[in-house]
Design a protein around this nucleic acid. Structure first.
Length: 776
DNA sequence: GCCACGACGGTACCT
DNA sequence: ACAGGTACCGTCGTGGCG
């Protein structure tokens, strides 16, 4: 029979009989199904020397290969654009891939093994053009046998799946969860401390809560498992769950002698690629992983993300700090507040999840990585997964990732800004400059002409400055990929124009165009990443060089039209507004450089200091836009940022310096009088390494050490919030975690001198306001 | 021993 | 673990200072 299904999750199972692929999905009628495909053998390639005698090498392979391996000559493959002699070795057992790679790789005439490092389940997706979060059709037989699997039907595949065009998403059951652990002091430890509460919120509008009696938490976990199995969610979402909830529950369960059977085949969650936690048959997503897509939010707490997305009403109305949890749990009269908080957290996670799910699924569908992996995968790996799938389509062999030394290269041009306040200003930027340069100059790993190679008949593009050459023809790998992506995005944006923004379809399309944009923009960075499989430094270097050439010529053209350029960075020029000159300039650029430039932003007024990458402007509609300055940073106190923003608003709206200075003075008076709330004095900084690895004593690392001493776990990547307290000594000796410090200890003079005054004078010094006049 | 100064470590931003 | 360019803070070593 034919089965149509939407792919939810894929995993492999290695048995004595060979390898199996398990495809978990939903069929047309929303039944949960499992298709077992036993007929996809793993394989790898042997790349032969150019001069090797293929017949002779094959004879040698016959002798040395494992008995289950099958040889197939594959003369169609290319490697870095060049046709190569390759032999495909197919094995019944995925475990024999490594053995064969080792023994066959040494054969005379074999240059290298390739694609032996592609995961078996990913291989299946690539070769069959199967897409997670997409619809497929497959020939299957129904299996009647009863099993523990939490699904309605099990099938065995009689063909491989074929992707079909159908854009709808089936209705999926989502479960959000969050746990509360009780540890009298410090971070909870699964071998000592119980899970006292687990709260869930589900997409059918219900919530569940499991609370322990005393510290016996066995029942809490057991009821949670039962709750999951009963609701049987397709998607489980958490916030920080890959690093906290799942590992804690797993270890705690082990300690208590129970199995955390929450997946769809009676098994436990397990850690998999990119450090994500995989729950077989379901999609497990930790939305903390996706929070760095939201750059506007600096401190990525659930509350901040939720507030930004409009997924909660009052963000910190009932926020309980981790450090205060024991006090709530220990006090019977306060326990209900804790359980209310925990439930609210689960509901907030659900709403955040529902908000970000479209985007996750679109990115997953585009890149071709399962939705539970896509959030945890770094940008480089997302880009690479996309490239790998495209490479297969054009029969390009996939290079290994190899370790290389790092050599930096020259990047973009940044112009010196003209300091001060300017009138109406247009920002002209090149549309996708790097991708379009790579297309126009056919810059790609497979078109690069090594020095010494003779020029091809059809000619080369020679990059400025270094003179690297790239074949004009045929179109390179990156050229094809980027052209497709740019076209796809244009198509989606056209559709968006004719779609009602209130419709679901609009949100899906918008998520899709965002996903396409992210991958398009990441290709240049990927090309210069030493970890990239297709790393060719000259590719990134030549692209950057053409970029510098382009912006330099654009400046010339602008000046020839009589435009005054006041700033520019990489692919943008800020010019004093003149409609006619700008129109002519845009045409000049198109004619001379073959690239599109357009005025995407017009400021009514704009302000620069002497520094690059820092400015503030006001749009015609009165909106402020503050770039690079302290207001835009997450590592300055709210107090300093508020003062700076206030000044910028006053200046951009009316340039009344007097008003700005008295605003600063008033704020400082309020500070001195203790009127500025505690939370506005917290400074947040990321711990970018293990606390022991710091060579100099820096405030946030010293604050982190204090947390460690008090039993709290801090890890690389954590944001540490601290305040500066009164006393003698260096700053780092006075940095105290905000959760430990009290208001009366705070050194308000520090905030005046080292936070507010610098942030304020950054702006006001341009108008010659002396620092002394800022102090009351 | 104290101070000014510059190099350097460290973080976060911009495109 | 996508790139390079940039600003800015705090720490720390160093040389001058009788």
């Amino acid at each position: 029979m034919k089965l149509r299904f939407w792919l939810l999750d894929i995993n492999d199972a290695i048995t004595e009989k060979g390898a199996e692929i398990h495809l978990w999905g939903l069929d047309d009628t929303a039944n949960h199904i499992l298709v077992v495909d036993k007929s996809f053998p793993p394989y790898f390639y042997l790349l032969l020397e150019d001069k090797a005698d293929i017949k002779e090498v094959v004879r040698e392979i016959e002798v040395k290969k494992s008995p289950d391996a099958v040889i197939e000559e594959d003369l169609e493959r290319k490697y870095f654009g060049k046709p190569v002699k390759a032999v495909k070795i197919t094995c019944r057992d995925p475990n024999s891939i490594a053995k064969n790679t080792n023994s066959l790789g040494k054969i005379n005439g074999v240059k290298a093994s390739l694609e032996d490092d592609i995961r078996y389940s990913f291989r299946y997706l690539i070769d069959n053009d199967v897409y997670p979060c997409g619809w497929h059709e497959i020939d299957v037989d129904k299996i009647e046998e009863k099993s523990d699997n939490k699904i309605e039907e099990i099938y065995v595949a009689k063909s491989h799946p074929r992707a079909i065009q159908k854009s709808s998403t089936p209705s999926l059951r989502i479960l959000a969860f969050s746990i509360v652990c009780y540890s009298p002091k410090g971070s909870p430890k699964p071998d000592k401390n119980p899970v006292v509460m687990i709260s869930t919120a589900t997409s059918n509008g219900k919530t569940m809560q499991f609370v322990s009696e005393g510290s016996n938490d066995k029942k809490v976990i057991e009821s949670f498992i039962e709750g999951i199995q009963t609701y049987d969610p397709d998607i489980i979402v958490g916030y920080g769950s890959n690093s906290f909830e799942w590992p804690f529950l797993l270890q705690r369960s082990k300690k208590l002698g129970i199995k955390l059977k929450v997946d769809r085949q009676g098994g436990e969650p397990h850690t998999s690629v990119y450090g994500h936690v995989s729950v077989t048959g379901r999609i497990n997503i930790d939305f903390f992983d996706l929070s760095d897509e939201i750059e506007e939010v600096k401190i990525k707490t659930l509350e901040n993300i939720a507030e930004y997305l409009g997924a909660t009403k009052k963000a910190d109305e009932m926020l309980i700090d981790d450090m205060d949890i024991p006090r709530y749990w220990e006090d019977n009269s306060k326990q209900s507040i804790l359980s209310e908080y925990s439930l609210k957290k689960a509901s907030t996670i659900l709403r955040v999840g529902q908000n970000l799910l479209n985007f996750s699924m679109q990115l997953s569908y585009l890149v071709g990585l399962p939705p539970d992996q896509i959030g945890a995968a770094a940008v480089g790996f997302r880009t690479e997964s996309y490239l790998i799938r495209q490479a297969y389509k054009i029969k390009e062999l996939i290079p290994h990732r190899i370790e290389r030394p790092y050599f930096p290269y020259k990047g973009a041009t940044v112009l010196e800004p003209k300091p001060g306040l300017h009138g109406k200003t247009a920002v002209l930027d090149f549309r996708s400059m790097y991708p379009n340069i790579m297309i126009a100059k056919n810059i790609s790993p497979d078109t690069y002409l090594e020095s010494g190679e003779k020029n091809p008949y059809l000619g080369v593009y020679v990059a400025p400055e270094m003179g690297y050459s790239f074949r004009k023809s045929p179109p390179g790998f990156y050229n094809k990929v980027l052209s497709t992506l740019i076209e796809a995005r244009d198509d989606i944006r056209d559709k968006l124009k004719n779609t009602d923004p209130k419709k679901t379809e609009y949100r899906v399309l918008d998520s899709r165009q965002r996903a396409v944009k992210i991958i398009t923009n990441a290709v240049y960075g990927y090309a210069g990443w030493i970890g990239a499989r297709w790393y060719v430094r000259e590719v990134a270097e030549a692209t950057a060089a053409w970029g510098r050439y382009t912006i330099a010529h654009a400046i010339d053209l602008a000046e020839k039209e009589g435009l005054e350029v006041i700033y520019g960075d990489t692919d943008s020029l800020f010019v004093l507004f003149d409609s006619e000159k700008i129109d002519r300039f845009i045409e000049d650029v198109q004619r001379d450089l073959g690239l599109e430039i357009s005025a995407n932003e017009v400021y009514e007024r704009i302000f620069f200091t002497e520094a690059k990458k820092r400015y503030a402007g006001i749009f015609t509609d009165g909106r402020l836009d503050i770039v690079g300055l302290e207001v835009a940073r997450g590592d300055w106190s709210e107090a300093a940022k508020r003062v700076q923003e206030g000044i910028l608003e006053i200046i951009l709206k009316g340039k009344i310096i007097q008003k700005a200075t008295s605003f600063v003075r008033q704020y400082i008076l309020d500070l001195r009088e203790g009127k500025i709330p505690f939370s506005d004095l917290i400074i947040w900084k990321t711990l970018t390494r293990d606390v022991s690895e710091y060579v100099v004593k820096v405030p946030h690392a010293e604050a982190a050490k204090r947390l460690l001493r008090e039993g709290w776990e801090v890890a690389r990547g954590d944001k540490i919030g601290f305040v500066i307290v009164k006393g003698r000594g260096k700053l780092h000796e006075r940095a105290v975690p905000y959760s430990i410090a009290t208001y009366s200890e705070i050194d308000l003079a520090f905030y005046e001198e080292q936070q507010i005054i610098p942030a304020a004078s950054r702006i006001l010094s341009i108008f010659n306001v002396p620092i002394e006049s800022l102090k009351p």
